[in-house]
Design a protein around this nucleic acid. Structure first.
Lengths: 223, 223
DNA sequence: ACTCCGTTTTGTGTATACAGAAACCGCAAA
DNA sequence: TTTGCGGTTTCTGTATACACAAAACGGAGT
Protein backbone atom coordinates (compact mmCIF):
# COMPACT_ATOMS: atom_id res chain seq x y z
CA UNK A 1 0.00 0.00 0.00
CA UNK A 2 2.89 2.37 -0.75
CA UNK A 3 1.95 5.86 -1.84
CA UNK A 4 2.03 5.81 -5.61
CA UNK A 5 4.02 8.89 -6.56
CA UNK A 6 6.79 10.20 -4.28
CA UNK A 7 4.78 13.40 -3.78
CA UNK A 8 5.98 16.81 -4.83
CA UNK A 9 7.62 19.09 -2.32
CA UNK A 10 4.86 21.68 -2.59
CA UNK A 11 2.28 19.00 -1.87
CA UNK A 12 4.19 17.75 1.15
CA UNK A 13 4.49 21.27 2.51
CA UNK A 14 0.79 21.88 1.94
CA UNK A 15 -0.32 18.71 3.69
CA UNK A 16 2.01 19.18 6.62
CA UNK A 17 1.05 22.80 7.22
CA UNK A 18 -2.63 22.06 6.73
CA UNK A 19 -2.47 19.13 9.09
CA UNK A 20 -0.67 21.16 11.72
CA UNK A 21 -3.20 23.97 11.48
CA UNK A 22 -6.13 21.57 11.70
CA UNK A 23 -4.58 19.79 14.68
CA UNK A 24 -3.88 23.05 16.42
CA UNK A 25 -0.12 22.55 16.44
CA UNK A 26 0.10 25.87 14.70
CA UNK A 27 -2.17 27.95 16.89
CA UNK A 28 -4.46 30.58 15.37
CA UNK A 29 -2.77 33.92 15.25
CA UNK A 30 0.72 32.53 15.13
CA UNK A 31 2.86 34.40 12.66
CA UNK A 32 4.80 32.34 10.17
CA UNK A 33 7.81 33.30 8.09
CA UNK A 34 8.61 31.83 4.70
CA UNK A 35 12.27 31.04 5.26
CA UNK A 36 11.63 29.71 8.73
CA UNK A 37 8.88 27.31 7.65
CA UNK A 38 10.69 26.28 4.50
CA UNK A 39 13.71 25.17 6.54
CA UNK A 40 11.57 23.43 9.14
CA UNK A 41 9.66 21.38 6.58
CA UNK A 42 12.71 20.79 4.47
CA UNK A 43 11.72 22.35 1.17
CA UNK A 44 12.86 25.50 -0.53
CA UNK A 45 10.89 28.71 -0.56
CA UNK A 46 9.34 28.20 -3.99
CA UNK A 47 7.18 25.15 -3.19
CA UNK A 48 6.48 26.50 0.27
CA UNK A 49 5.02 29.65 -1.23
CA UNK A 50 2.79 27.55 -3.42
CA UNK A 51 1.60 25.66 -0.36
CA UNK A 52 0.88 28.88 1.51
CA UNK A 53 -1.02 30.22 -1.48
CA UNK A 54 -3.29 27.19 -1.34
CA UNK A 55 -3.78 27.61 2.40
CA UNK A 56 -4.79 31.21 1.86
CA UNK A 57 -7.29 30.08 -0.77
CA UNK A 58 -8.61 27.58 1.79
CA UNK A 59 -9.04 30.40 4.28
CA UNK A 60 -6.79 28.71 6.83
CA UNK A 61 -4.11 31.34 6.56
CA UNK A 62 -4.10 35.05 5.85
CA UNK A 63 -1.29 37.02 4.30
CA UNK A 64 -0.07 39.78 6.53
CA UNK A 65 0.59 43.12 4.94
CA UNK A 66 4.31 43.43 5.45
CA UNK A 67 5.81 40.49 7.25
CA UNK A 68 4.96 36.85 6.67
CA UNK A 69 1.55 35.31 7.09
CA UNK A 70 -0.55 34.05 9.96
CA UNK A 71 -2.99 31.29 10.85
CA UNK A 72 -6.53 32.67 10.86
CA UNK A 73 -8.37 33.05 14.14
CA UNK A 74 -11.61 31.27 15.00
CA UNK A 75 -13.94 33.59 16.86
CA UNK A 76 -17.31 32.68 18.33
CA UNK A 77 -18.85 34.89 15.68
CA UNK A 78 -17.09 33.05 12.90
CA UNK A 79 -18.52 29.76 14.14
CA UNK A 80 -22.03 31.11 13.77
CA UNK A 81 -21.18 32.45 10.36
CA UNK A 82 -19.75 29.14 9.25
CA UNK A 83 -22.91 27.41 10.35
CA UNK A 84 -25.02 29.82 8.29
CA UNK A 85 -23.11 28.69 5.23
CA UNK A 86 -23.12 25.08 6.33
CA UNK A 87 -26.86 25.11 6.76
CA UNK A 88 -27.45 26.42 3.27
CA UNK A 89 -25.13 23.86 1.72
CA UNK A 90 -26.06 20.77 3.68
CA UNK A 91 -29.77 21.28 3.39
CA UNK A 92 -29.44 21.64 -0.35
CA UNK A 93 -27.10 18.65 -0.52
CA UNK A 94 -29.37 16.41 1.49
CA UNK A 95 -32.41 17.48 -0.50
CA UNK A 96 -30.71 16.61 -3.77
CA UNK A 97 -29.27 13.41 -2.33
CA UNK A 98 -32.75 12.24 -1.34
CA UNK A 99 -33.84 12.67 -4.94
CA UNK A 100 -30.85 11.03 -6.58
CA UNK A 101 -29.54 8.47 -4.17
CA UNK A 102 -28.98 4.82 -4.81
CA UNK A 103 -31.10 3.37 -1.96
CA UNK A 104 -28.72 0.43 -1.51
CA UNK A 105 -25.82 2.70 -0.57
CA UNK A 106 -27.82 4.36 2.16
CA UNK A 107 -29.33 1.12 3.39
CA UNK A 108 -25.81 -0.19 3.90
CA UNK A 109 -24.87 3.05 5.62
CA UNK A 110 -27.94 2.77 7.82
CA UNK A 111 -26.79 -0.67 8.91
CA UNK A 112 -23.51 0.85 10.07
CA UNK A 113 -25.17 3.75 11.83
CA UNK A 114 -27.33 1.49 13.94
CA UNK A 115 -24.26 0.76 16.03
CA UNK A 116 -23.28 4.44 16.28
CA UNK A 117 -25.28 5.43 19.38
CA UNK A 118 -23.51 2.75 21.40
CA UNK A 119 -20.09 3.44 19.89
CA UNK A 120 -19.68 6.64 21.84
CA UNK A 121 -19.54 4.61 25.05
CA UNK A 122 -16.54 2.55 23.91
CA UNK A 123 -13.69 4.93 24.57
CA UNK A 124 -11.30 6.49 22.11
CA UNK A 125 -11.46 3.63 19.62
CA UNK A 126 -15.24 3.81 19.48
CA UNK A 127 -15.05 7.56 19.09
CA UNK A 128 -12.66 7.18 16.20
CA UNK A 129 -15.00 4.72 14.52
CA UNK A 130 -17.85 7.15 15.13
CA UNK A 131 -16.06 9.90 13.24
CA UNK A 132 -15.26 7.47 10.46
CA UNK A 133 -18.99 6.85 10.14
CA UNK A 134 -19.63 10.58 9.85
CA UNK A 135 -17.05 10.72 7.08
CA UNK A 136 -18.76 7.85 5.29
CA UNK A 137 -22.06 9.65 5.64
CA UNK A 138 -20.57 12.78 4.09
CA UNK A 139 -19.07 10.79 1.24
CA UNK A 140 -22.36 9.04 0.57
CA UNK A 141 -24.09 12.42 0.37
CA UNK A 142 -21.41 13.81 -1.95
CA UNK A 143 -21.69 10.80 -4.19
CA UNK A 144 -25.47 10.93 -4.37
CA UNK A 145 -25.54 14.66 -5.06
CA UNK A 146 -23.05 14.36 -7.88
CA UNK A 147 -22.52 18.10 -8.10
CA UNK A 148 -18.86 19.17 -8.17
CA UNK A 149 -19.63 22.80 -7.28
CA UNK A 150 -21.70 21.90 -4.28
CA UNK A 151 -19.27 19.23 -3.15
CA UNK A 152 -16.34 21.63 -3.38
CA UNK A 153 -18.18 24.18 -1.26
CA UNK A 154 -19.02 21.49 1.28
CA UNK A 155 -15.43 20.35 1.43
CA UNK A 156 -14.36 23.87 2.28
CA UNK A 157 -16.89 24.08 5.08
CA UNK A 158 -15.79 20.74 6.48
CA UNK A 159 -12.21 21.95 6.62
CA UNK A 160 -13.15 24.81 8.90
CA UNK A 161 -15.46 22.55 10.85
CA UNK A 162 -12.57 20.24 11.66
CA UNK A 163 -10.79 23.12 13.39
CA UNK A 164 -13.88 23.96 15.41
CA UNK A 165 -14.37 20.36 16.53
CA UNK A 166 -10.98 20.51 18.19
CA UNK A 167 -12.06 23.46 20.30
CA UNK A 168 -15.04 21.72 21.79
CA UNK A 169 -14.63 18.53 23.78
CA UNK A 170 -17.70 16.54 22.90
CA UNK A 171 -19.88 14.93 25.50
CA UNK A 172 -21.21 11.48 24.74
CA UNK A 173 -24.81 12.46 25.39
CA UNK A 174 -24.72 14.88 22.51
CA UNK A 175 -22.90 12.45 20.23
CA UNK A 176 -25.53 9.80 20.89
CA UNK A 177 -28.27 12.26 20.02
CA UNK A 178 -26.39 13.32 16.90
CA UNK A 179 -26.19 9.71 15.80
CA UNK A 180 -29.95 9.39 16.13
CA UNK A 181 -30.38 12.55 14.09
CA UNK A 182 -28.19 11.13 11.37
CA UNK A 183 -30.28 7.98 11.34
CA UNK A 184 -33.39 10.01 10.79
CA UNK A 185 -31.79 11.85 7.89
CA UNK A 186 -30.61 8.58 6.37
CA UNK A 187 -34.10 7.10 6.65
CA UNK A 188 -35.56 10.12 4.93
CA UNK A 189 -33.02 9.82 2.13
CA UNK A 190 -33.76 6.12 1.68
CA UNK A 191 -37.46 6.92 1.52
CA UNK A 192 -36.77 9.66 -1.02
CA UNK A 193 -38.52 12.13 1.26
CA UNK A 194 -36.42 15.18 0.40
CA UNK A 195 -38.51 17.54 2.43
CA UNK A 196 -38.13 15.53 5.61
CA UNK A 197 -34.42 15.08 4.92
CA UNK A 198 -34.01 18.84 4.58
CA UNK A 199 -35.93 19.66 7.75
CA UNK A 200 -34.18 16.96 9.74
CA UNK A 201 -30.85 18.38 8.62
CA UNK A 202 -31.96 21.85 9.66
CA UNK A 203 -32.80 20.56 13.12
CA UNK A 204 -29.57 18.57 13.33
CA UNK A 205 -27.43 21.58 12.51
CA UNK A 206 -29.32 23.72 14.98
CA UNK A 207 -28.60 21.23 17.77
CA UNK A 208 -25.03 20.84 16.62
CA UNK A 209 -24.37 24.57 16.76
CA UNK A 210 -25.94 24.86 20.20
CA UNK A 211 -23.80 22.02 21.46
CA UNK A 212 -20.60 23.42 19.99
CA UNK A 213 -21.19 26.86 21.45
CA UNK A 214 -22.06 25.40 24.84
CA UNK A 215 -18.97 23.19 24.82
CA UNK A 216 -16.71 26.11 23.96
CA UNK A 217 -18.31 28.17 26.66
CA UNK A 218 -17.58 25.41 29.16
CA UNK A 219 -13.97 25.18 28.05
CA UNK A 220 -13.27 28.87 28.37
CA UNK A 221 -15.05 29.38 31.70
CA UNK A 222 -13.67 26.15 33.19
CA UNK A 223 -10.04 27.16 32.71
CA UNK B 1 -7.13 58.10 -9.49
CA UNK B 2 -3.80 56.33 -10.02
CA UNK B 3 -3.55 52.79 -8.79
CA UNK B 4 -1.94 52.97 -5.39
CA UNK B 5 0.73 50.30 -5.49
CA UNK B 6 2.44 49.36 -8.76
CA UNK B 7 0.94 45.86 -8.49
CA UNK B 8 3.00 42.73 -8.18
CA UNK B 9 3.80 40.68 -11.23
CA UNK B 10 1.89 37.67 -9.91
CA UNK B 11 -1.17 39.85 -9.39
CA UNK B 12 -0.94 41.29 -12.88
CA UNK B 13 -0.64 37.82 -14.37
CA UNK B 14 -3.61 36.61 -12.32
CA UNK B 15 -5.86 39.48 -13.34
CA UNK B 16 -4.93 39.30 -16.98
CA UNK B 17 -5.43 35.54 -17.25
CA UNK B 18 -8.61 35.66 -15.24
CA UNK B 19 -9.97 38.48 -17.36
CA UNK B 20 -9.11 36.68 -20.56
CA UNK B 21 -10.78 33.50 -19.38
CA UNK B 22 -13.91 35.36 -18.28
CA UNK B 23 -14.04 37.26 -21.57
CA UNK B 24 -13.62 34.08 -23.54
CA UNK B 25 -10.35 35.22 -25.11
CA UNK B 26 -8.86 32.03 -23.75
CA UNK B 27 -11.44 29.51 -24.86
CA UNK B 28 -12.43 26.62 -22.62
CA UNK B 29 -10.33 23.60 -23.32
CA UNK B 30 -7.37 25.55 -24.63
CA UNK B 31 -4.13 24.16 -23.34
CA UNK B 32 -1.68 26.64 -21.86
CA UNK B 33 2.03 26.28 -21.27
CA UNK B 34 3.89 28.01 -18.49
CA UNK B 35 6.80 29.41 -20.48
CA UNK B 36 4.56 30.45 -23.32
CA UNK B 37 2.15 32.38 -21.11
CA UNK B 38 4.90 33.84 -18.96
CA UNK B 39 6.55 35.37 -22.03
CA UNK B 40 3.27 36.61 -23.43
CA UNK B 41 2.28 38.41 -20.24
CA UNK B 42 5.79 39.58 -19.59
CA UNK B 43 6.55 38.02 -16.23
CA UNK B 44 8.82 35.18 -15.27
CA UNK B 45 7.60 31.70 -14.55
CA UNK B 46 7.54 32.06 -10.76
CA UNK B 47 4.78 34.67 -10.48
CA UNK B 48 2.94 33.09 -13.37
CA UNK B 49 2.79 29.80 -11.52
CA UNK B 50 1.37 31.57 -8.51
CA UNK B 51 -1.30 33.11 -10.72
CA UNK B 52 -2.18 29.75 -12.22
CA UNK B 53 -2.38 28.21 -8.77
CA UNK B 54 -4.99 30.82 -7.83
CA UNK B 55 -6.92 30.19 -11.03
CA UNK B 56 -6.97 26.49 -10.23
CA UNK B 57 -8.30 27.28 -6.76
CA UNK B 58 -10.98 29.42 -8.44
CA UNK B 59 -11.93 26.47 -10.63
CA UNK B 60 -11.26 28.42 -13.82
CA UNK B 61 -8.32 26.28 -14.78
CA UNK B 62 -7.38 22.65 -14.26
CA UNK B 63 -3.88 21.27 -14.09
CA UNK B 64 -3.22 18.68 -16.73
CA UNK B 65 -1.39 15.58 -15.65
CA UNK B 66 1.75 15.88 -17.69
CA UNK B 67 1.78 18.95 -19.85
CA UNK B 68 0.69 22.43 -18.83
CA UNK B 69 -2.80 23.34 -17.75
CA UNK B 70 -6.09 24.09 -19.43
CA UNK B 71 -9.11 26.34 -19.14
CA UNK B 72 -12.05 24.39 -17.72
CA UNK B 73 -15.00 23.57 -19.92
CA UNK B 74 -18.56 24.75 -19.30
CA UNK B 75 -21.02 22.03 -20.10
CA UNK B 76 -24.79 22.33 -20.02
CA UNK B 77 -24.73 20.00 -17.04
CA UNK B 78 -22.30 22.21 -15.17
CA UNK B 79 -24.63 25.17 -15.59
CA UNK B 80 -27.41 23.29 -13.86
CA UNK B 81 -25.01 22.22 -11.15
CA UNK B 82 -23.79 25.76 -10.62
CA UNK B 83 -27.38 26.91 -10.25
CA UNK B 84 -28.02 24.28 -7.59
CA UNK B 85 -25.23 25.80 -5.56
CA UNK B 86 -26.27 29.32 -6.43
CA UNK B 87 -29.79 28.67 -5.26
CA UNK B 88 -28.66 27.41 -1.89
CA UNK B 89 -26.35 30.37 -1.35
CA UNK B 90 -28.49 33.20 -2.65
CA UNK B 91 -31.61 32.10 -0.86
CA UNK B 92 -29.70 31.94 2.39
CA UNK B 93 -28.01 35.27 1.68
CA UNK B 94 -31.24 37.04 0.87
CA UNK B 95 -32.97 35.57 3.89
CA UNK B 96 -30.24 36.82 6.19
CA UNK B 97 -30.05 40.15 4.40
CA UNK B 98 -33.75 40.71 4.98
CA UNK B 99 -33.19 40.23 8.70
CA UNK B 100 -30.08 42.40 9.02
CA UNK B 101 -30.33 45.05 6.36
CA UNK B 102 -30.13 48.78 6.83
CA UNK B 103 -33.43 49.76 5.20
CA UNK B 104 -31.96 53.01 3.89
CA UNK B 105 -29.40 51.20 1.76
CA UNK B 106 -32.05 49.16 0.04
CA UNK B 107 -34.43 52.08 -0.33
CA UNK B 108 -31.68 53.90 -2.22
CA UNK B 109 -31.04 50.80 -4.28
CA UNK B 110 -34.74 50.50 -5.00
CA UNK B 111 -34.72 54.05 -6.36
CA UNK B 112 -32.01 53.04 -8.82
CA UNK B 113 -33.75 49.87 -9.84
CA UNK B 114 -36.94 51.66 -10.79
CA UNK B 115 -35.15 52.79 -13.94
CA UNK B 116 -33.80 49.32 -14.71
CA UNK B 117 -36.71 47.92 -16.73
CA UNK B 118 -36.38 50.76 -19.23
CA UNK B 119 -32.59 50.69 -19.28
CA UNK B 120 -32.51 47.52 -21.33
CA UNK B 121 -34.03 49.44 -24.24
CA UNK B 122 -31.22 51.98 -24.37
CA UNK B 123 -28.55 50.06 -26.24
CA UNK B 124 -25.14 48.99 -25.05
CA UNK B 125 -24.71 51.88 -22.61
CA UNK B 126 -28.00 51.10 -20.94
CA UNK B 127 -27.10 47.46 -20.77
CA UNK B 128 -23.82 48.31 -19.12
CA UNK B 129 -25.61 50.42 -16.56
CA UNK B 130 -28.02 47.56 -16.00
CA UNK B 131 -25.21 45.18 -15.12
CA UNK B 132 -23.71 47.80 -12.84
CA UNK B 133 -27.01 47.83 -10.98
CA UNK B 134 -26.88 44.07 -10.59
CA UNK B 135 -23.41 44.44 -9.13
CA UNK B 136 -24.65 47.06 -6.69
CA UNK B 137 -27.47 44.74 -5.71
CA UNK B 138 -25.00 41.94 -5.03
CA UNK B 139 -22.80 44.25 -3.00
CA UNK B 140 -25.75 45.46 -0.96
CA UNK B 141 -26.67 41.87 -0.16
CA UNK B 142 -23.11 41.01 0.77
CA UNK B 143 -22.91 44.01 3.04
CA UNK B 144 -26.20 43.28 4.76
CA UNK B 145 -25.39 39.61 5.30
CA UNK B 146 -22.03 40.41 6.86
CA UNK B 147 -20.87 36.81 6.70
CA UNK B 148 -17.39 36.36 5.20
CA UNK B 149 -17.87 32.62 4.59
CA UNK B 150 -21.12 33.06 2.73
CA UNK B 151 -19.83 36.05 0.80
CA UNK B 152 -16.72 34.16 -0.30
CA UNK B 153 -18.84 31.28 -1.55
CA UNK B 154 -21.09 33.71 -3.41
CA UNK B 155 -18.11 35.40 -5.01
CA UNK B 156 -16.94 32.08 -6.35
CA UNK B 157 -20.33 31.36 -7.84
CA UNK B 158 -20.47 34.79 -9.46
CA UNK B 159 -17.12 34.17 -11.12
CA UNK B 160 -18.44 31.11 -12.91
CA UNK B 161 -21.69 32.89 -13.63
CA UNK B 162 -19.82 35.60 -15.50
CA UNK B 163 -18.49 33.00 -17.91
CA UNK B 164 -21.94 31.59 -18.49
CA UNK B 165 -23.42 35.02 -19.18
CA UNK B 166 -21.05 35.35 -22.11
CA UNK B 167 -22.42 32.19 -23.68
CA UNK B 168 -25.98 33.39 -23.73
CA UNK B 169 -26.94 36.50 -25.62
CA UNK B 170 -29.63 38.03 -23.45
CA UNK B 171 -32.91 39.19 -24.84
CA UNK B 172 -34.33 42.40 -23.49
CA UNK B 173 -37.67 40.84 -22.62
CA UNK B 174 -36.01 38.56 -20.12
CA UNK B 175 -33.81 41.33 -18.72
CA UNK B 176 -36.86 43.49 -18.16
CA UNK B 177 -38.58 40.68 -16.31
CA UNK B 178 -35.43 40.03 -14.29
CA UNK B 179 -35.36 43.67 -13.24
CA UNK B 180 -38.92 43.36 -11.97
CA UNK B 181 -37.98 40.24 -10.04
CA UNK B 182 -35.11 42.09 -8.44
CA UNK B 183 -37.46 44.86 -7.43
CA UNK B 184 -39.70 42.38 -5.70
CA UNK B 185 -36.77 40.93 -3.80
CA UNK B 186 -35.61 44.40 -2.79
CA UNK B 187 -39.08 45.28 -1.56
CA UNK B 188 -39.21 42.13 0.52
CA UNK B 189 -35.82 42.94 2.02
CA UNK B 190 -36.89 46.47 2.87
CA UNK B 191 -40.01 45.09 4.52
CA UNK B 192 -37.90 42.60 6.44
CA UNK B 193 -40.00 39.81 5.01
CA UNK B 194 -37.29 37.17 4.82
CA UNK B 195 -39.64 34.42 3.76
CA UNK B 196 -40.92 36.36 0.78
CA UNK B 197 -37.40 37.43 -0.12
CA UNK B 198 -36.29 33.79 -0.12
CA UNK B 199 -39.19 32.56 -2.22
CA UNK B 200 -38.88 35.45 -4.67
CA UNK B 201 -35.20 34.60 -5.08
CA UNK B 202 -36.08 30.98 -5.67
CA UNK B 203 -38.46 32.00 -8.44
CA UNK B 204 -35.98 34.46 -9.90
CA UNK B 205 -33.24 31.87 -10.14
CA UNK B 206 -35.62 29.37 -11.67
CA UNK B 207 -36.51 31.83 -14.43
CA UNK B 208 -32.91 32.84 -14.84
CA UNK B 209 -31.79 29.26 -15.39
CA UNK B 210 -34.57 28.60 -17.86
CA UNK B 211 -33.62 31.69 -19.80
CA UNK B 212 -29.92 30.88 -19.84
CA UNK B 213 -30.52 27.33 -21.04
CA UNK B 214 -32.94 28.51 -23.70
CA UNK B 215 -30.51 31.17 -24.90
CA UNK B 216 -27.66 28.70 -25.14
CA UNK B 217 -29.87 26.30 -26.99
CA UNK B 218 -30.67 29.04 -29.50
CA UNK B 219 -27.01 29.88 -29.94
CA UNK B 220 -25.92 26.35 -30.65
CA UNK B 221 -28.80 25.41 -32.95
CA UNK B 222 -28.67 28.76 -34.76
CA UNK B 223 -25.03 28.38 -35.77
C1' DA C 1 14.98 60.17 28.90
C1' DC C 2 12.96 60.89 24.53
C1' DT C 3 12.67 61.64 19.64
C1' DC C 4 14.22 61.78 15.09
C1' DC C 5 16.92 60.16 11.37
C1' DG C 6 20.28 57.25 9.01
C1' DT C 7 22.02 52.58 8.86
C1' DT C 8 21.69 47.78 9.03
C1' DT C 9 19.22 43.77 8.94
C1' DT C 10 15.79 40.86 7.45
C1' DG C 11 12.22 39.17 4.43
C1' DT C 12 9.57 39.19 0.50
C1' DG C 13 9.02 39.31 -4.73
C1' DT C 14 11.06 38.02 -8.93
C1' DA C 15 14.25 36.05 -12.12
C1' DT C 16 17.05 32.41 -13.45
C1' DA C 17 19.62 28.07 -13.36
C1' DC C 18 19.46 23.15 -12.99
C1' DA C 19 17.64 18.36 -12.76
C1' DG C 20 14.43 14.90 -13.75
C1' DA C 21 10.44 13.25 -16.19
C1' DA C 22 7.25 12.91 -19.77
C1' DA C 23 6.04 13.51 -24.59
C1' DC C 24 7.86 13.44 -29.44
C1' DC C 25 10.35 11.71 -33.31
C1' DG C 26 12.52 8.48 -36.13
C1' DC C 27 14.09 4.14 -37.20
C1' DA C 28 14.02 -0.60 -37.41
C1' DA C 29 11.84 -5.01 -37.04
C1' DA C 30 7.69 -7.92 -37.48
C1' DT D 1 1.40 -0.86 -42.14
C1' DT D 2 2.05 -1.28 -37.57
C1' DT D 3 4.60 -1.72 -33.33
C1' DG D 4 8.40 -1.34 -30.16
C1' DC D 5 12.46 1.00 -28.72
C1' DG D 6 16.19 4.73 -28.12
C1' DG D 7 17.45 9.20 -28.47
C1' DT D 8 16.16 13.90 -28.31
C1' DT D 9 13.60 17.67 -26.96
C1' DT D 10 10.73 20.23 -24.13
C1' DC D 11 8.48 21.21 -20.07
C1' DT D 12 7.72 21.08 -15.29
C1' DG D 13 9.35 21.11 -10.35
C1' DT D 14 12.73 22.85 -7.30
C1' DA D 15 16.62 25.41 -5.68
C1' DT D 16 19.10 29.51 -5.51
C1' DA D 17 20.59 34.25 -6.42
C1' DC D 18 19.48 39.02 -6.54
C1' DA D 19 16.88 43.44 -5.86
C1' DC D 20 14.01 46.18 -3.45
C1' DA D 21 11.22 47.44 0.57
C1' DA D 22 10.11 47.53 5.18
C1' DA D 23 11.08 46.94 9.83
C1' DA D 24 14.49 46.91 13.68
C1' DC D 25 18.42 49.16 15.58
C1' DG D 26 21.44 52.65 17.15
C1' DG D 27 23.34 57.04 17.62
C1' DA D 28 23.01 61.90 17.85
C1' DG D 29 20.65 65.85 19.10
C1' DT D 30 17.37 68.00 22.22
Amino acid sequence: MGSGTPLRASERAYRQLRGEILDGVLAPGSGLLEVEQAERIGVSRTPLREAVARLIADGLVAGRSGRGFEVTEISIDSIGELYELRQALEIQAVRLAAQRRDPEVFRALREQFLTAPSLVLHGAAGLHRYYELIDEFDEAIDGAVGNPFLVAALRSVRTHLARIRRLARKNSTRLKAAAEEHLLIIDAIIAGDYSLAAHATHVHLHQSLLSVLAAIDDETTAD
